[in-house]
């Protein structure tokens, strides 16, 4: 009885989770005349793979993907580097302003990103970074959560690790790079995945910063296509599927890292 109930719950939820993706995939290969037929068809009558070349040629879609990839990879590099440097300092050194700095980390975690877009926009204008990919990346090159996670990772390491290295006469930077970083690899992997997925899917900030089409990230590009390609859902569907692929693949390949990392930042 209990088992049967569990099974029903799981099947229903899995179907609800997956059907929208199947619907997206179906729409992406439908012909124009099949988009708004009623009743809607789940399995397309014809398979028009041209929709994919269509979206690729009609707008600079490849460029959107390259821009998103640039933004996401830069974000990953910056966040890993800056968070692990600061997290190391907060976890493994005692110094005068440590409490104050950690307080700033916690405070920044409480500030909603959405309220910062106005002053960030004026800052980015002042720095002449408006309408540039660097303008998208730089304000979130490090975030409180990342420093918090890396501090947590370094705190968990046993005390005597660096003592041995210091006795060997290792310089602090070398200690950090070749002794400490390898020991927190799981946390680095988790932070990298989160940053990539977050940055790939980010919308409000890139939309505020980016003005010209050749700088759009794929999310901004898709939302604009939605406005201009009203009659061409199938192109938008093909584009959405292409834009989903990188994060879906990353997640499927790294599921284990992802799940472990999820829990390290969850208060568990």
């Amino acid at each position: 009885m209990r088992k049967a109930l569990s099974r029903i719950v799981i099947i229903t939820a899995s179907a609800a989770a997956v059907i929208p993706f199947l619907w997206l995939a179906a729409t992406s290969v439908k012909g124009a005349e099949e988009l708004f037929v009623y009743p809607p068809t789940f399995i397309p009558r014809t398979f028009q793979w041209e929709n994919y070349t269509g979206v690729w040629n009609a707008i600079p879609f490849g460029l959107y993907l390259v821009n998103s990839l640039t933004v996401a990879l830069l974000s990953v590099v910056f966040n890993l580097l800056l968070s692990s440097l600061a997290g190391f300092a907060l976890a493994r050194y005692r110094f005068r302003y440590r409490g104050l700095l950690f307080g700033a980390v916690l405070f920044s975690m409480m500030v909603p990103k959405e309220m910062l877009v106005i002053p960030l926009f004026t800052s980015v204008l002042r720095l002449h970074l408006a309408d540039s990919l660097l303008g998208v990346v730089l304000p979130f090159a490090v975030e409180g959560m990342g420093i918090f996670l890396m501090r947590q990772a370094f705190l968990a390491l046993p005390r005597d690790v660096e003592e041995a290295a210091v006795m060997d006469g290792a310089a602090p930077l070398r200690l950090w790079w070749s002794v400490m970083l390898p020991m927190v690899r799981p946390s680095l992997a988790a932070l990298a995945i989160f940053t990539f997925i977050g940055s790939w899917g980010d919308f409000l900030w890139p939309m505020v910063v980016l003005k010209s089409q050749e700088h759009y990230t794929v999310q901004v590009g898709l939302s604009m296509m939605l406005g201009t390609f009203v009659d061409n859902y199938r192109y938008v569907a093909a584009g959405s599927l292409l834009a989903l692929l990188p994060v879906a693949l990353l997640f499927i390949l790294m599921q284990r890292h992802f799940e472990r990392g999820l829990l390290s930042g969850s208060g568990k």
């Binding site: 800056l82 500030v111 106005i118 975030e143 409180g144 420093i147």
Partner: peptide, 24 residues
């Protein structure tokens, strides 16, 4: 040493998170 490690991150965090909060 710890200040040097912390500086890059906290410059970014200060300029792009804490300061904008006050600016808002």
């Amino acid at each position: 040493t710890p200040y040097l490690f912390a500086a890059p991150a906290f410059l970014v965090l200060g300029y792009f998170s804490i300061l904008p909060m006050l600016q808002t």
